[in-house]
Amino acid sequence: MRSIELFAGAGGLGIGASEAGFHPAKVVEWDDYCVETIRENQQRRLGIVKGWPVVHGDVRHVDFSPHHGQVDLVSGGPPCQPFSLGGKHRAHKDSRDLWSEAVRAVRETQPRVFIFENVKGLLRDTFASYVSYIQLQMQYPSLDRKEDEDWADHLSRLERHHTSGKEPEYRLVMRLQNAANFGVPQRRERVFFVGFRADLGIEWNFPDQTHSLDALIWDQVVTGAYWERNKVATRDRVINPRHEARAKVLQRTFGGLPEGTSRKPWRTVREALAGLPDPELNPEVAAELLNHRFQAGARSYPGHTGSPLDEPAKTLKAGVHGVPGGENMLLRPDGSVRYFTVRESARLQTFPDKYKFHGSWSETMRQLGNAVPVQLAAVVARDVATHLQSA
């Protein structure tokens, strides 16, 4: 199956789609460092990106019409800074808002399906009208915005068209998903937009969650299976008080995990980093691995406390606000903190260990902080691919 990847970044969504069986006809990214990351891995002949035809440039200058009717999937993550909870929340007033370009790619290629994703901040109440605008554009991509029409007038025209009884060109599903619920060792919420071309008649829903917090709590607090599985001595076991309280509720109310709860526990930082030498304690050994060097300067203060070793990591941030690296720190059981290395952060984002990131620590952390976890992307893309093949 053929695809086009927009706003590729360091490659998270694209790698996930490739793992699901989509082969890109075009991969578009404007950022120099992200492009160098992809190209450096191509030069290293890393199979998952080796054949990607990368277009290094502004998506607004790319003509997609030669691919009309020839691709199955258009995917990507339009720049999220206009909606990020850590940004200035300018949305459609921000020049980095390129949702219209994502819709244009769909209009010019008419793929069988599209997958777009963005940050949780997109769902803020202040953006509600604009989110409706995005959704209606995706459902009716051929109803393009006129030259003299602002977005609000275009929205009104789309609403009239939608309520006139016209059949949508794409049947759209939107949902907020937490990556931790799909085995990613990080609490990371992303909004997904998945639309199948209406003429295909495909019925689709998001894949069921495979992992749960309650299962992790049960393993840590009630059975102790988590500690035994990871060979953690009793003196090194630090349990979140909220998890202890929840365990009591589970025992008292349900006598175990509630019916329908995913039995696989959330994956933790400890499990994600298994096998990696500590870069602070063993710098020479760590330096032999890709992107695994100690970064000094981490410190804890209110609102900046790091990720506990025995829980999924907090959301990795792009590091452009406040202290460099944002919240990208490991919190050890003894209370000390240090920054995650780039390799550790890549593990938390489920990138392959052989995937190398180009640039300085702060630059590579920006790439990782903006990325979609590969595993989450692959879960969605595989399910989409299965439905396309069945159709």
Rank of each mutant, 00 (worst) to 15 (best):
R171C: 14
L172H: 11
L172P: 12
V173E: 06
M174G: 08
M174D: 01
R175N: 10
R175M: 05
L176V: 13
L176T: 10
Q177F: 15
N178E: 03
N178I: 08
A180C: 00
N181K: 10
N181R: 15
N181P: 08
N181W: 03
F182I: 04
Q186F: 11
Q186I: 15
R187N: 14
E189P: 03
E189T: 13
F192I: 11
F193D: 01
F193E: 00
V194I: 13
G195H: 01
F196N: 07
R197E: 04
A198G: 00
D199P: 13
D199I: 03
L200V: 11
E203Q: 13
W204L: 02
P207N: 11
Q209D: 06
T210V: 12
H211L: 12
S212G: 08
S212A: 11
D214T: 05
I217P: 03
I217D: 02
D219E: 14
Q220N: 06
V221C: 15
V221H: 03
V222S: 01
T223H: 05
G224C: 05
G224N: 03
A225F: 00
Y226K: 08
W227A: 01
E228V: 10
V232R: 00
T234G: 04
T234I: 14
D236F: 00
V238R: 07
V238T: 04
I239M: 09
N240E: 10
R246M: 07
R246P: 01
A247H: 08
V249R: 08
Q251K: 14
Q251P: 06
R252D: 14
R252P: 04
R252M: 08
G255D: 07
P258M: 09
P258K: 12
E259T: 14
K264H: 08
R267D: 00
R267V: 09
R267N: 02
T268A: 00
T268L: 02
A272F: 14
A272M: 04
A274P: 05
G275M: 03
L276Y: 06
L276N: 01
L276F: 09
P277F: 11
E280G: 09
P283D: 02
P283C: 10
V285S: 12
A286M: 04
A286Y: 12
A286W: 07
L289F: 15
L290E: 06
H292G: 07
F294T: 02
F294M: 06
A296S: 15
G297L: 10
A298F: 12
Y301E: 09
Y301K: 15
T305N: 03
T305H: 07
S307K: 09
L309H: 08
L309A: 11
P312F: 01
P312W: 10
K314H: 06
